[in-house]
Simulated scan of single mutants.
Amino acid sequence: MNVLSEQELHYLAMNIVGKDLETKGFEFLSVNSKPKKNPQFVCLKDKKIHFIIVRAVKYPEDPNLYDKNLVEKVKDHANKFNAITYYAGVALANADDYNKPIIKNQKYIVDYHGIIKV
């Protein structure tokens, strides 16, 4: 049984958010896949810079709840670039049993509501 690590869950969340951003016409300027290095995405859309913070959470955590201190720190940095800051929370759960860990190559459930302007 190969349980996904925190890093792998973060990569999965980034993949989900990245695909969403692509479909919405965001152009990637910078991608940082380290969980504690923020923002994860710096994008361009409509001639504006966008900073996107990505966080993977496990069920039953609410993917839309975020660390206000972290967001303020990123917003302060974004303001120096006239950038808009967003938060993208992705909740992940084992499809067979929400209380079990997510296993490599097995089905999982995603709770993602898109990016939230913060």
Score class of each variant (00 low, 15 high):
I52L: 06
R55P: 00
F28P: 05
Y108F: 15
I84C: 02
K34Q: 13
K36V: 09
K73A: 12
A91L: 03
K75D: 07
D97C: 13
K117D: 07
V57E: 00
K19W: 02
I53R: 02
P101L: 02
P63C: 04
D111F: 09
V57P: 01
A83L: 13
K58L: 14
I84A: 03
D97L: 05
N64V: 09
A91E: 08
F41S: 06
N82S: 14
H50W: 15
V31G: 02
R55C: 00
L65P: 01
I84D: 08
D97A: 10
I109Y: 04
K100A: 14
N94C: 05
N15M: 03
V110Q: 07
A93Q: 11
N105Q: 12
K73R: 14
V54G: 00
K58H: 01
S33N: 13
F41Q: 04
V42N: 03
G114W: 08
I116Q: 14
D67V: 09
D46E: 15
N94D: 06
H10L: 00
L92C: 04
N64F: 03
K19S: 14
N64H: 06
F28G: 03
Y59E: 01
D20W: 15
Y112R: 11
E27V: 11
I103C: 07
L29G: 04
N79I: 08
H113P: 07
A95F: 13
M14L: 12
N105G: 09
D62M: 02
N15S: 12
Q106I: 02
G89P: 06
K75P: 06
D76S: 14
V57Y: 02
Y66C: 10
L21H: 14
Y108K: 03
L9G: 00
F26N: 04
A13V: 05
K24F: 08
A88D: 01
K104Q: 04
I52G: 06
K75V: 15
A95N: 11
T85E: 04
Q106F: 08
P35D: 01
E72M: 08
A95R: 10
L70H: 05
K104M: 11
I84T: 11
A56I: 05
V90I: 03
A88Q: 05
N38M: 07
P35N: 05
Q40Y: 01
G25A: 12
K100V: 03
E27I: 14
L70M: 15
I52W: 05
L92F: 02
K45R: 15
N82F: 08
E8C: 00
I116M: 11
K117F: 03
H10K: 01
S5N: 00
R55A: 01
N82C: 10
K36E: 11
M14K: 00
E22S: 13
P39S: 06
S30V: 13
I109W: 08
I49R: 14
D96Q: 13
A13W: 01
L92M: 05
E61Q: 15
H50F: 03
G18H: 05
V17Y: 00
K75C: 12
L44F: 07
H10I: 00
Q7N: 06
V31Q: 12
G25V: 09
N79H: 07
K47D: 15
Y87C: 09
K36R: 15
V42L: 04
I16W: 06
